[in-house]
Design a protein around this nucleic acid. Sequence first.
RNA 1: GGCGGCGUGGCCAAGUGGUCUAAGGCGAAGGUCUGCAAAACCUUUAUUCAUCGGUUCGAAUCCGAUCGCCGCCUCCA
Length: 469
Amino acid sequence: MQIYNTLTKKKEEFIPLDPPNVTMYVCGPTVYDYFHIGNARSFVVSDIIYRYLEYKGYKVKYVMNLTDVDDKLIKKANEEGITTAEVSKRYIDAFFEDIDKLKIKRATVYPKATEHMQEITDLIKKIEENSYAYETEGEVFFDVAKFDGYGKLSGKNIDDLESGARVEINDKKRNPLDFSLWKKAKDGEPFWDSPWSKGRPGWHIECSAMSMKHLGESFDIHAGGNDLIFPHHENEIAQSGAGCNGGFAKYWIHFGFLNIRDEKMSKSLGNFFTAREVLNKYSAEAIRFLFNQAHYSSPLNYSSDLIESSKKGLEKISSTALKIKNEIEKGNNTGENPDFNFNNYYTQFEAAMDDNFNSPKAIAVIFDFVRDVNAVIAKRENLSLEFYKNAKLFLEKTAEQVLGILHFDELHAGQGPSLENDLIELLTKLRASAKADKNYQLSDQIRDGLKEIGITLQDSKTGTTFTKD
RNA sequence: GGCGGCGUGGCCAAGUGGUCUAAGGCGAAGGUCUGCAAAACCUUUAUUCAUCGGUUCGAAUCCGAUCGCCGCCUCCA
């Protein structure tokens, strides 16, 4: 399996430090607001990496942090006249609601910054002891100039950055590039005790401290959005290198942005949709399908046209899945077992995903599979149960369990007893007798009427089936 | 200004030295099936990969130039 590593700028064979265990850390949300559909892309992409590693048989420990202390959170709390803890509680709850709706598999741990103050201050102390940090008036900064190789992840060099001169102005810093490890609290700001002052950690240190605590000083994968490469991940590498002896993360994976009209979706540009508002209009499967249709590292535009087209594409897969499911439920095993090479599709699916998680190619394999299955079905009156079961298994393992773009349990089969289904069943029977009498005016009236309320009838040789929107 | 990425059919998108006269999806056209539909299947829809030049027996893929777009360098997935 090959993974593109931002650190070495090339695809590398994935060799975990301690197979079959894999340790993975992904930068999670700052919980000061609902997350937008661009953030959702990162969470979904991480989810698919996680699921595919498990598909490959790895035992994955997956950590996603929740940043529940930061300037934006404080601002929000002040605006609303509540505590930062209340703000973070509200948006952590919302975060879990939304990722559940996106059918994201829960990570192993979701550590919170506020619950790791001991680890954070301990790490800062170590960095200080190793003389990579200095204190000024209760504030602690990382001394960038002391750290050899600063900039190796982002491909930047210190001199260029200084001439760029777009760094925060702060008299207390020796070098404008130095960044906060510990910030002294101002009046009314939340604070924690520390050897330096009552205050709070800087933005980057929590990730170093929490990844170390939960995954160790060396772990396999560290992932996040492209915009985190600099300064966030660069600074994490510096802090961890300065404060511990481990190798920190081995593989760095970075995700492309979700764009709106070719521009990055972001809170500050105001060109965003929250994940929850998009989820009100489109299914998790459609959203995940859209994300999977582009490679995780490429920019991807978001628009209603594009997601509509994803929805259409997905219907092709799910209607085949529904057909398979219905056949299995009927349990008719009188048909023949066709010559169908399932293995070939697994091989291709794995080859695609093994190549740096090439999900667009993996989806193409699923479409090939669906087309070929449909072709077999179209040619025969009936097929063996074994064929349908194998077909279901393939879609379950790939589209459902890895990509999460299909869920057999939620397919609108219209099966099972319910008043609604019984009524549709009754109408279908009435229509069948109208058809038998060649009363097409009445039969079409029934079909069109049902269509209007979201029920689509489909006639076939073996009878009429229906689907609900 | 520094660093990085991208430009493939109407749209989305994979492919990064020969199997590429370029996968897959959406859309469009024709056909099979059907009372008519729908779904499904079959066929068609890029001799061409921003432009120009070069390297090579061979380039969408490598090199150079040009044009266009985007990102990071400040909080951001």
